[in-house]
Amino acid sequence: MPEQEDRIRTRLAQLPTTPGWIEAVGAWGPPAEPLDALEAVVDAAVARYARGAHGQPTMLVHAATAPAAVARVLPHLPTSLHEQSVRAAWAATCAVVAAYRATGDLPDTALEGRTADDLWQAALAHGGEHVIKLADTALASAARTGNDDGLHATARALELDA
């Protein structure tokens, strides 16, 4: 996104004229397994959160939680709505991620031996709805993938008071 200023609506308004945007969002073909595709989008957004949350920690929560919400309702939707649901979640995540540049490196958010349970308890104690939503999504991603991205994302959300 060319201009990284102002609020999200101003940033999103740039998307139609951002070179390559339409092609990039449309380049993703129909997923063979819609649920797997949504989980991949969630996992990528969770992995990016710690590097990009400094831009707007609350808005970037939605890059991960929106496709996670679609994944939760997908089994209850008619099959005819699966593809467009995945595409909508993909486009929404891409838009939010494009609105906020990530740093190149993972910040020094120390896990200091904190477990997923420790981080979940810290998120609950924090009480912020966005911190809790991200922790729920990010810690589920960590459990599914077996990597620490979800732990780092949760620690960063707590640190930034998302």
Rank of each mutant, 00 (worst) to 15 (best):
L77M: 13
A99G: 13
A37Y: 03
S80V: 12
G52S: 12
D136F: 12
V25M: 13
N147C: 11
R87K: 15
H152Q: 04
V70P: 03
G127S: 03
A116W: 00
A155F: 10
L35V: 09
I132Q: 06
W28R: 09
E23M: 09
S80W: 13
Y100R: 04
I132L: 11
T10W: 13
H82M: 05
L60M: 13
L158K: 07
P57C: 15
D118K: 07
G52N: 04
A99V: 03
V86C: 09
A123M: 06
I22A: 14
M1S: 04
V25Y: 13
A162N: 04
V46D: 08
V61D: 02
R101A: 15
H130Q: 06
A40H: 15
E5L: 06
G127C: 12
A68C: 01
V42N: 05
A66R: 03
G150H: 05
D36K: 13
R156H: 12
L77V: 03
D36L: 15
T93M: 07
W21R: 07
E39A: 10
E83I: 08
L124T: 09
G146W: 03
G26W: 08
W28M: 09
M59R: 09
W21C: 06
E159Y: 08
V41W: 01
A68R: 08
W28L: 13
S85H: 00
L81Q: 09
A116D: 11
A98N: 07
G113E: 02
A95F: 05
L158P: 00
R11E: 11
